[in-house]
């Protein structure tokens, strides 16, 4: 019993800290940059992705023995798309404001590399409980990272937090931070800070390569045009 608890905790922490999908694995960059101009959008996106991730990981780990290996990626995508649709419908019904704020990015959770990546790398090989916990950890890590970015951008860029104005900062807004270029800038700065704080300890993993991409096995042999150096080296 003691052992399972320990394992569960390490699985959760793995997603939240050691393999944080945003800052360490650098997956799912599109929503990270797009919806973090406000804390509300960041939280909403994080929780929506968390829900999809837990559900899709669970179902994939239930079904992976039934799904033929050759068509597993399309099957995973359909499972994920189905859960995204469910989340979309729930949000449209109960949180229409957030639904409008997230817009197309909600539907784009379907092609978020984190979710397909975890289905391929974890849920397809592990049991149900581990997969659900892994989904929960990764989802929490994603939510925390997004909220951190959203906080930096909203507090300094708009002088407010969750829409509530912060007295002093209202006079010193840096509106660059809430604009699209500010998204790239804050993301770069946060990654640099994480690297500096950890003395580059996690830097080795932080690579945008073909290997890190969940699709790498699918396109695998067709990677002639991309050189060996690109496959292995950091960007």
């Amino acid at each position: 019993m003691q052992k399972t608890e320990k394992n569960a905790l390490s699985l959760l922490l793995n997603g939240i800290i050691f393999e944080n999908p945003v800052f360490v694995l650098v997956l799912g960059t599109c929503p990270t940059l797009a919806v973090t101009s406000s804390v509300k959008g960041a939280l909403g996106m994080g929780i929506a992705a968390l829900a999809v991730l837990v559900c899709s990981n669970t179902v994939v780990s239930l079904l992976h023995k039934l799904i033929p290996d050759e068509v597993r990626i399309p099957c995973y995508i359909i499972i994920i798309a189905a859960f995204v649709t469910v989340v979309q419908m729930i949000m449209q019904a109960f949180m229409p404001e957030l639904y409008a704020l997230l817009g197309v990015y909600l539907a784009l959770i379907t092609v978020n590399c984190i979710i397909l990546g975890r289905a391929e790398m974890f849920a397809g090989k592990n049991g149900i409980i581990e997969s659900a916990l892994d989904g929960l950890g990764m989802g929490l890590g994603f939510t925390l990272a997004l909220t951190l970015m959203g906080t930096v951008r909203e507090v300094f860029g708009n002088g407010s937090f969750l829409g509530m104005p912060i007295g002093v900062l209202q006079n010193y807004k840096i509106s660059f931070l809430v604009s699209p270029p500010g998204g790239f800038f804050v993301f770069g700065a946060l990654i640099a800070i994480v690297t500096a704080l950890t003395n580059g300890a996690v830097n080795g993993k932080r690579r945008l390569t073909c290997k890190a991409c969940p699709m790498s096995k699918m396109c695998g042999a067709s990677g002639e045009g991309i050189t060996e150096e690109d496959k292995n080296g950091a960007i």
Partner: peptide
């Protein structure tokens, strides 16, 4: 600078 190597400096360039 060491901490900016790789992804951070690339993101700054994208920002500009």
């Amino acid at each position: 600078p060491k901490a900016l190597k790789g992804l951070p400096v690339t993101l700054f360039a994208a920002s500009i």
